[in-house]
């Protein structure tokens, strides 16, 4: 059994996490999350893989032909559905947040630390920064 798929999965997870941590744009960050997700695809496919075996579809193969593990293939399919749902939801949220705030930078979109120029937008309730003292948004 080759170590390559496991090393690839670990590497994908690692660079995906690095991307999420350092990202300054939510669209990029969502892409990095998808990279993390693909680490699981590689891992699961690697676990189910058998050398010289067919895909687990016996339409044009006699039953009994060696095939890769169909359970892992089913898990990957489900995982792809989950990944697509998450990506779609996150992209919708990114779109909505861009409409309201005009930025996609995670550092400018902290939920409980809204910008001090609140009230200039068209929708949404009023928001205050730190009550009691004006604290400027840290500049990167």
């Amino acid at each position: 059994m080759s170590l390559l798929p496991y090393a690839t999965a670990a590497w994908l997870l690692g660079i995906g996490l690095y991307g999420i941590v350092t990202s300054r744009n939510y669209i990029h960050l969502i892409g990095c999350l998808a990279v993390c997700q693909s680490a699981t695809y590689v891992l699961l496919l690697g676990i189910g893989y058998r050398r010289d075996a067919i895909a687990p579809i016996f339409y044009d193969h006699p039953p009994g032909t060696p095939a890769v593990d169909p359970v892992m293939q089913a898990l990957v399919l489900t995982d792809i559905v989950v990944g697509a749902t998450l990506t779609a939801l996150l992209l919708v949220l990114a779109l909505q947040v861009f409409k309201r705030r005009g930025t996609l930078d995670p550092q400018k979109l902290k939920p409980m630390h809204p910008p001090s120029n609140a009230g200039t937008r068209d929708a949404g309730p009023r928001e205050a920064g730190f009550a009691g003292e004006a604290r400027p948004e840290p500049q990167p």
Partner: peptide, 30 residues
């Protein structure tokens, strides 16, 4: 609204990672 979406995005990213870690663990156990 602004705060809800921003909070939801942090929540979504961290908890999606939870799902990814869990699935990787399930794969190893299998």
């Amino acid at each position: 609204d602004d705060a809800a979406i921003a909070g939801a995005m942090t929540f979504t990213v961290t908890n999606s990672l939870a799902g990814i870690l869990m699935l990787a663990g399930i794969g190893l156990l299998y």
